[in-house]
Design a protein around this nucleic acid. Structure first.
Length: 232
DNA sequence: GCGACAG
DNA sequence: ATCTTGTCGC
């Protein structure tokens, strides 16, 4: 079923307003909190898939048991994308759909694992920060690319990490989740620390480069998009 | 001005 | 993100 996503208060219509919203909301990011202990409670992966031709966006939220990585609950939401993809403004394209999917969960999401950045962002307010602030949940960002940031290559061993930097500032970490495979780029979203975020990511990657939470959410939102496209 | 640029 | 064949490896 295709729905119309409710937009959060003050939702911007232009890029300039969107950047202003980021500048304003970033003061609400809570840093320094330890956050949930890796391997305990629940962890929720969120991801979004698109069908640009039909202007469809599908979001998925998959709750995993943090210890066993078994799926506890899943939810999806499909609707129209209300914002184009603009580097640095990804959240405005994905947040309404993700919030709709999260509202469909009965289980406590625990930690939110987002596909993209948190503090590793031009204005230090990436998708993971945005979702964290709007939901109040602890959140982290796990991206597949370093974006505009730089990092020294971490050693080839799983678990090795190197700082992801913007000038002299460490905005995240390049973390090797599989030996000899390109690292993932982890950053803090809300209510947790970079060390804890990296520990969570390692706990979520026993076998593949990307967190199980992300892989499950990715597969689910693609499926939801297929079903919606087929019946539209 | 031009290129780069999370998903 | 998405478009796409074959291919190497566990």
């Amino acid at each position: 079923m295709i729905t119309s996503f409710p937009l959060p208060a003050g939702w911007p219509a232009t890029e300039a307003r969107a950047r202003a919203v980021q500048e304003e909301l970033r003061s609400r990011v809570v840093l320094g909190e330890q956050g949930p202990a890796p391997g305990t409670g629940t962890v929720t992966g969120v991801d979004v898939a698109y069908d640009d031709a039909r202007d469809l966006v599908a979001a998925a939220a998959v709750v995993l048991d943090a210890a066993s990585l078994e799926v506890r609950e899943e939810a999806t939401a499909v609707g129209r994308a209300g914002f184009p993809y603009v580097p640095g403004l990804l959240a405005f394209r994905e947040v309404p759909a993700v919030l709709a999917a999260l509202r469909g969960l009965a289980t406590d999401p625990g930690l939110l694992v987002c596909d993209g950045y948190g503090l590793a962002h031009p204005r230090r307010f990436g998708l993971a920060c945005h979702l964290g602030v709007l939901t109040g949940l602890p959140a982290i960002g796990v991206a597949k690319n370093p974006f505009t940031f730089t990092y020294p290559e971490p050693s080839g061993a799983r678990g090795s990490a190197a700082p992801l930097t913007d000038g002299a500032e460490e905005v995240g970490r390049a973390l090797r989740t599989r030996a000899g495979v390109k690292p993932v780029f982890v950053s803090v979203g809300h209510r947790t620390t970079l060390e804890s975020a990296c520990a969570h990511v390692l706990a979520l990657t026993p076998r593949y480069r990307l967190p199980e939470s992300t892989r499950r959410a990715d597969a689910l939102c693609r499926r939801a998009l297929e079903e919606a496209s087929g019946s539209a």
